[in-house]
Amino acid sequence: MNTPRVRISPAALGVILVLLVIQLYLFETVLGAVLDGQRSVLPGAFFVSLALTAISLFLAFRSTVEHGPKE
């Protein structure tokens, strides 16, 4: 019998890791700017961060609907 197998490729995991590193850098930069009283960066940074998160979530959760190779 075919059992559905949930898989995520190493490449997808790598992309998610890279996106997380970018998020970390972005957050640190935004925090520094806010502490310096420059709040104008916040809307742009939020939407960039949101886009990165959407890609990460898509890559991480999309795999649940895929089925592994048939045996």
Binding site: V6, R7, I8, I16, Q23, T53, S56, L57, A60, S63
Partner: peptide, 17 residues
């Protein structure tokens, strides 16, 4: 699993957002 790890990373990413 790799999948759980990927999900964990994605949720951390959402935390930054």
């Amino acid at each position: 699993s790799r999948r759980e790890f990927a999900r964990f990373l994605a949720v951390v990413s959402a935390g930054f957002t």
